[in-house]
Design a protein around this nucleic acid. Structure first.
Lengths: 155, 155
DNA sequence: ATTCTTCTGGGCAATCTGTCCAGTAACGTC
DNA sequence: GACGTTACTGGACAGATTGCCCAGAAGAAT
């Protein structure tokens, strides 16, 4: 399973103009339409490209607060805890990590009160020992893949 | 600027079938084509919907390691540091947070050696005081917005 | 009651999609 | 070197979709 510069250029193109048609991509990349189609099919089939989820500004949706929590979990209950966390709507991301903390959680909320409620819900999950949370004040670098793609595309 | 259930249902639809056409969306939502078009235009214009970036499995791309770093920054140099971090390709996300740590960084790497290099680069940024890093062992909940949308869509 | 905004349902020309195909270039193998 | 495999090109086709426009209906606000 390979991923060459053309794949990267294609994905960059779709990053910039997501709802672009296959034909237009082919034109801009200077290759035949079938090639673009084949690449997209292959990337999807190989599981490299898992989709094109909409990118939303959550604050415009009413969820203006983002917070992080580091959870320390009781011995051997990590999987179980992770599952319960996944059931909380406001929990947008969970990682198991090395270090003193065991689980790292990203969550969102509508207001301070709402955040309080969400945090209570998170730390209230059975098996959670110690927690420490912090609030995101700003996001200088929003989630991105672009630089990596550009490198592969021979930027 | 509102965001109603139809908007949410539309975005859920596009989440599941990203490269779906406008007409097909209209059919599945049971509304006129023009409505779907208008909603998408409005969401984009309002800045709620910022795009449809490709969702990639970075490990399939060679970047199999994800690590997090909490950086403590010298007084008043946060913005400056954030800018330098943004210039590092492997840095995929940066948040300014409350708490003892000042900046929270997510980064990726190809291998342990590579991660070492990336970490060195990150902590080597001038203005970075103390750092603590940890590695993501697994990701029980990958970044998601779905539950929030479903709630708005009247789930 | 009147005005605005939004949605509907339809029509139009131009474009795109999915799907074929044959020819050609590139690559590894024997 | 000869051969087989794989990927890309360029072109064809019918059918579907897009962008755009419009008049009328339905609701909400004044």
């Amino acid at each position: 399973m390979t991923f060459d510069a053309l794949d990267a250029r294609l994905l960059l193109l779709l990053t910039d103009a997501p709802r672009l048609g296959v034909l237009e991509c082919a034109r801009r990349l200077g290759v035949a339409r079938g090639t673009v189609q084949a690449r997209l099919d292959r990337l999807s089939a190989d599981g490299v490209l898992t989709g094109f989820p909409p990118e939303l500004r959550l604050d415009a949706l009413g969820y203006g607060l983002t917070a992080f929590a580091v959870l320390e979990i009781a011995q051997g209950r990590r999987g179980e805890v992770a599952e319960e966390l996944a059931a909380i709507d406001e929990v947008c991301e969970v990682h198991a990590t090395t270090g003193q903390g065991d689980l790292f959680v990203r969550m969102v909320a509508r207001s301070n009160d709402d955040l309080q409620r969400v945090i209570d819900e998170v730390v209230g999950v059975s098996g959670v020992r110690r927690t420490s949370t912090s609030i995101a004040l700003s996001t200088p670098v929003a989630p991105r893949v672009r630089p990596l793609l550009e490198r592969i595309a021979q930027g």
